[in-house]
């Protein structure tokens, strides 16, 4: 056994040094390589998961926004129709009243004019009657004076 160990050059000190070497290297690689690289991989994974979640949420938000848009549009259409109908109704009513007013006014004017015309007629007749009477008096006077002279 002694000879075998010697042939292979086995030395416990060297074995212990090699174990220490391994521990040192494992520590150094963990610190310099494994931790930062695996940490970065984990971080990236989290970021990607976050990104996917965000995208899903955004899609959901978009869908609900579309829905809302549709609702708002249809409500607006309905409102617009109502407003239009109301406006038409009002305009029709207004037009009817205006026409009616105009008619009564026109009738009034016509009546007034007729009244005035009649009045003028009566006046004219009165005046012409007075004129005729006057002329008749004058003519009589003339006849009388001719007869007397």
């Amino acid at each position: 056994m002694e000879q075998l160990l010697q042939a292979f050059g086995i030395d416990t000190k060297l074995i212990i040094i090699q174990i220490i070497n391994f521990v040192v290297l494992a520590g150094a690689l963990s610190y310099f390589l494994y931790k930062p690289v695996l940490g970065m991989l984990e971080k990236r994974e989290e970021k990607i998961a976050q990104g996917v979640q965000d995208a899903e949420e955004a899609a959901k938000a978009k869908a609900s926004a579309d829905e809302e848009k549709k609702e708002i549009l249809s409500a607006a259409h309905k409102d617009a129709e109502e407003v239009g109908a109301n406006a038409k109704k009002y305009a029709d009513e207004k037009a009817a009243t205006i026409v009616a007013d105009a008619q009564t006014k026109a009738e009034g004017v016509i009546k007034d004019a007729e009244g005035k015309g009649e009045e003028i007629k009566v006046q004219a007749r009165k005046e012409s009657e007075a004129e005729v009477a006057k002329l008749a008096v004058l003519a009589a006077e003339k006849v009388l004076t001719q007869k007397s002279s």
Partner: peptide, 15 residues
């Protein structure tokens, strides 16, 4: 060699 390479590779990992 390993520690040097590890130092360069893991110095400031980027996204």
């Amino acid at each position: 060699v390993l520690v040097a390479v590890a130092h360069f590779a893991g110095k400031s990992p980027k996204m």
